[in-house]
């Protein structure tokens, strides 16, 4: 493993498999009454969140605490950051505190790359702008592997606002590394103009993709996009690209439905689909802690590079 986890592209197939295998073992720890491990005693993990994301922050926090690391939550709101302190100065402060790892969530694509220039510890990308969210992709891959056994040659269809989705970018890279076949489905306005250079298939037709999918991953679509003319109305979006009961019925019987959350019920996914037995949405949350434990252990559990 490298020192940082910033992009899913940083992970070789061996790296990614090691993370998933480690998570498999750690999942057993989550099942026992004492969930804590002493492994990262004396290590400090800083959660540096410039964007509100309670879900992701508590997931990292739980992961770090289960490994006995000290956790400092640094939220940009109400801190010196909101008073105009630069990312660099924040980084130097964390550096002075002796952070062994900084988990960063930022609205600017590339912020974790910049941060890595200014701190000695490991940088873990917890979502940067519209770029990447590698631990989300890892937990998605982990969830798929547990449900489907393997990812090799599995057909994964990712549906929605690919253009603005860090989840989609990380998933395409990681799933490709792990041997899955990815198809992106979206209205053309919500795909990058050069999407054909990505290692995946692209389609505008959800109904054509569904019967050939082992996994259907729905992305959150923000209704603000409507105002920027990406699509005419929420209703039209939902009709063409939403996953409802009829569409669920067109998927193979053992295919699963995923969503990184938070969901817009009734927009990209119908409530009854989100809550059905083939939906892994709750599992994904639990797996998030496990995969983040694996990442923190592999980044911080060994010698300091």
């Amino acid at each position: 493993m490298r020192r940082h986890l910033i992009s899913a592209a940083d992970l070789s197939r061996d790296d990614a498999t090691l993370i998933l295998d480690t998570a498999d073992e750690l999942a057993r720890v989550s099942d026992r009454s004492i969930k804590k491990l002493p492994t990262l005693r004396g290590r400090t993990v800083v959660n540096l969140f410039f964007e509100d994301s309670t879900r992701t922050r508590i997931s990292f926090e739980a992961a770090a605490k289960r490994l006995s690391a000290d956790v400092i939550n640094f939220s940009a709101k109400g801190s010196s950051v909101s008073k105009g302190e630069s990312l660099k100065d924040t980084a130097l402060t964390l550096q002075a505190m002796g952070a062994d790892a900084v988990v960063i969530r930022h609205s600017a694509s590339g912020a974790p790359h910049r941060l890595a220039n200014w701190v000695d510890g490991s940088v873990v990308n917890a979502g940067d702008g519209t770029h990447e969210h590698p631990t989300q992709a890892l937990l998605d891959a982990f969830t798929m592997r547990r449900r489907l056994g393997t990812l090799e040659d599995r057909r994964v269809t990712i549906v929605g606002d690919v253009l603005h989705s860090r989840v989609a970018r990380s998933n395409v890279l990681l799933l490709n590394t792990l041997g899955a076949q990815v198809t992106l489905v979206a209205p053309p306005t919500l795909l990058p103009v050069t999407v054909e250079s990505w290692p995946c298939e692209v389609s505008y037709d959800l109904d054509a993709a569904l019967p050939k999918s082992d996994v259907v991953m729905m992305l959150r679509v923000q209704s603000e996009r409507m105002n920027a003319a990406y699509f005419p109305s929420a209703r039209e979006y939902s009709r063409r690209y939403g996953l409802d009961r009829d569409r669920l019925a067109r998927m193979p019987e053992d295919a699963i439905v995923m969503h990184p959350g938070p969901m817009n019920r009734g927009m990209e996914i119908a409530a009854e689909v989100a809550d059905c037995a083939r939906s892994t949405i709750v599992e994904q949350v639990a797996n998030g802690v496990t995969i983040r434990m694996a990442v923190l252990y592999l980044l911080l559990g060994g010698e300091t590079q």
Binding site: S109, G110, T130, H131, R166, V193, W198
Partner: peptide, 18 residues
């Protein structure tokens, strides 16, 4: 817009300048 709109902006998630 943040950088040239093309393959690189698509990968980096930066808003393109076409």
């Amino acid at each position: 817009a943040q950088m040239n709109e093309g393959a690189v902006s698509g990968r980096l998630g930066l808003t393109g300048w076409p």
